[in-house]
Amino acid sequence: MLELNAGFFAVAAPAVVFAGVSKGGFGSGAAFAASTILALFLEPGQALGVMLPLLMLIDAASLKPYWRRWHWPDARLLILGGVPGVVLGVALYRVADADLMRLLIGGISIAFVGWQFARGRGWIRASRERLPGWAGLLAGVVTGFTSFVSHAGGPAAAVYLLSQRLDKTRYQASTVLIFGVLNCVKFVPYAFLGMFTWQTAVANLALAPFALLGTWLGVRAHDLVPERLFFGLTYVLLLVTGGKLIWDGLG
């Protein structure tokens, strides 16, 4: 049972601020690190249930600057593929126990770091040719699935969007739209699966100011904090928390 005590807020408030900074200032799929942190202290389903409304709030706060600046054809493909990906996530969640979810969240966290490291080293590069529409649908399925089970849909979406050679603003606006829509889609099955409770609702109300604070800080940190430093700290955090979740899941 979720206990809304001082210990919970001591962990949850900084995690939510981090999510806001990550999405608001660095356009980062690494905002899902907040869910990974909470999953260390809560049942995975509770951690995901606490974070989803807060991520939706951050999405809404980030939407105005990018309104209608996205590339709709590419965003539409990823959204259309994302919906069946969410359905796959629902099917898995219905049969998975808490330890399997810990393994999945931890594994995705570490895989995310590996993917980013490989990109930074040039081992993974955007396709020289624009990927076809079917690849966008497939990337959408992976995006929807990983987003459902850990709020970590960024890499699969990025692989497709980067191949389309979008400019920085269209790329960022497209990700804001895609994950804004998919988070709304996820809300319904999360509710039916019992991942929202009165306790998570109270937690959301209490943590909402921290989400908005993080978004505000992120916008300002964008020009003040070196991107390399921010992501370096993020990757260390994901490695430690993801490794701990895998350890707990195997134990």
Rank of each mutant, 00 (worst) to 15 (best):
L42M: 12
L42C: 11
L42E: 09
G45H: 10
A47C: 09
A47P: 03
L48A: 09
G49Y: 03
M51Y: 07
M51K: 05
L52K: 00
P53A: 07
L54K: 00
L54D: 00
L55P: 01
D59N: 13
S62H: 12
L63M: 14
K64R: 15
Y66D: 08
Y66I: 09
W67D: 07
R68C: 12
R69K: 15
W70P: 01
W72G: 11
W72P: 05
W72E: 12
P73L: 08
D74F: 14
A75M: 08
R76G: 10
I79H: 00
L80H: 03
G82I: 05
V86W: 04
V87Y: 01
G89C: 08
G89M: 02
G89A: 07
G89V: 07
V90S: 07
L92V: 14
L92A: 10
R94W: 14
V95N: 01
V95F: 10
V95I: 13
A96G: 11
A98V: 12
L100R: 07
M101E: 07
R102N: 10
L103D: 10
L104M: 15
I105W: 07
I105S: 07
G106A: 09
G106M: 07
I108G: 05
S109L: 05
S109Y: 03
I110Y: 08
F112K: 06
F112Y: 15
Q116N: 15
G122W: 11
I124K: 05
I124C: 03
S127D: 10
R128S: 15
R128I: 12
E129H: 13
R130C: 05
L131D: 09
G133A: 15
W134S: 15
W134A: 14
W134G: 12
W134H: 14
W134C: 11
A135F: 10
A135G: 08
A135M: 12
A139G: 10
G140W: 01
V141S: 03
G144T: 04
F145R: 01
F145N: 02
F145W: 05
F148Y: 12
V149Q: 00
V149M: 04
H151Q: 13
H151L: 10
G153C: 04
P155V: 03
A156V: 04
Y160P: 01
L162M: 14
Q164F: 06
L166I: 06
R170T: 10
Q172A: 15
S174R: 04
S174Y: 05
T175G: 10
V176E: 03
V176K: 04
L177S: 02
L177H: 02
L177W: 03
L177I: 11
I178F: 04
F179Q: 00
G180W: 02
L182S: 00
L182P: 00
N183R: 00
N183H: 06
